[in-house]
Design a binder for these strands. Structure first.
Lengths: 206, 206
DNA sequence: CGCTAATCTAGAACAAGTTTCAGACTTGAT
DNA sequence: ATCAAGTCTGAAACTTGTTCTAGATTAGCG
């Protein structure tokens, strides 16, 4: 596997400079509009206009609104992973560190709830045509969690626990975004699910 | 709280017979179209035509496509809860019974994957305007799980565990529907998360 | 029965995602 | 520098969810 920016994307044809710039302008416009009014506020015509690109071009870069928003999420996730790396969590147990990390991410999302709404809704609404991109987001999330656990090569059990944590994370986020769960509840649920980690830690049979 | 059909819905104005019939026709058409081609195949004009109702009327009964599909899900969930009641799960532990119940539900959904797709996508895409209906679905799901646990009054911890199980259930379903997880993986994740139940059972500190 | 308010119907109109197309511009290779 | 292939632009068209309107029907009531 050749060294490549953690960004991923096989880079089937390396974009020229101007193309890279267009791509960034589009993602920036997308995030900006999303921050304003969430999923609905990201209108393809407006994204095109804001990023100084023809509508057809926008669709060449991102074949659908969902693709665009999922790519926006990848972009934001990288930021976040970078930020988290700088200040690793300090808890004693793996479970505690993961919970701390997720709550930190959660607080970051709280600062831009509309953006969070747009990204998460796109993510869960995505159909099979977006699977590769969604998968990439999922791998990135997994990496963040494994980082917090401080684990190099997890057992299958632990991987399952991590998947369950991700499930809970996404779904809890949705219930919070749609106003059906309080922040406190999200916190409790995150902490609850993180106990699964200790449960699957071979060293620490409670 | 007055006794009312488990169906819910405060019944602000009791529908006449013809109205009730229209409502059923609509839900039936919705489920039928969904079974064919999933979320996208449920087109409001087609639902209206199939159920012999004007488009405006359809929108009077269900104020959006998402409302319609969430109502369809409520409908199906009731069916399922009824079916499950008849053959309660037989496992020894609460965790086992819940896992068994969920996997049974999962197999039922497998039989109509397109319908499952439509319902689950609508559920997670729903915004605040659909919260009451989504909440109702969530309560129904909770009831099914608590039934399987054989629990009358759960502790807050147990409620959190149940919420986490629901999160996992929904999210795992989505990853399966979008082809990003195998059935085997869903099974493992369900079983993994169900261990939380034993973990929070006051009687059975493993 | 006859009236009134609510409901239903058919169909047009509107909004936003997506597709299409003809022509202008870039790029890379020769 | 020139040409071919690929890309970008602007604008219109198409699709499907949603709203609106005018007139027909129905339900409940005196």
């Amino acid at each position: 596997m050749p060294a490549e920016a953690s960004t991923s994307r096989p880079a089937s044809s390396p974009l020229t400079e101007r193309q890279e710039a267009r791509r960034r302008r589009i993602l920036h416009a997308s995030a900006q509009l999303a921050s304003r009014g969430g999923f609905d506020a990201v209108q393809m015509r407006e994204v095109a206009e804001s990023s100084q690109v023809a509508l057809g071009t926008l669709y060449r870069y991102f074949p659908s609104k969902v693709h665009l928003l999922v790519a926006t999420m990848q972009d934001q996730l990288e930021h976040m992973h970078g930020t988290l790396r700088k200040k690793p969590p300090t808890g004693d147990s793996a479970a505690g560190r993961v919970a701390e990390t997720l709550m930190r991410a959660f607080r970051a999302l709280q600062r831009e709830p509309h953006l969070a709404d747009a990204m998460v809704r796109a993510l869960t609404f995505a159909d099979r045509s977006v699977s590769p991109e969604v998968d990439q987001v999922s791998r990135q999330t997994t990496a963040i969690i494994l980082d917090a656990m401080g684990l190099a090569d997890p057992t299958p059990q632990q991987l399952s626990a991590v998947r369950v944590i991700e499930h809970t994370w996404h779904s809890a986020l949705i219930t919070w975004l749609s106003g059906r769960a309080s922040i406190a509840q999200v916190k409790i649920d995150i902490e609850t699910v993180c106990r699964l980690i200790d449960l699957t830690d071979p060293d620490r049979r409670a």
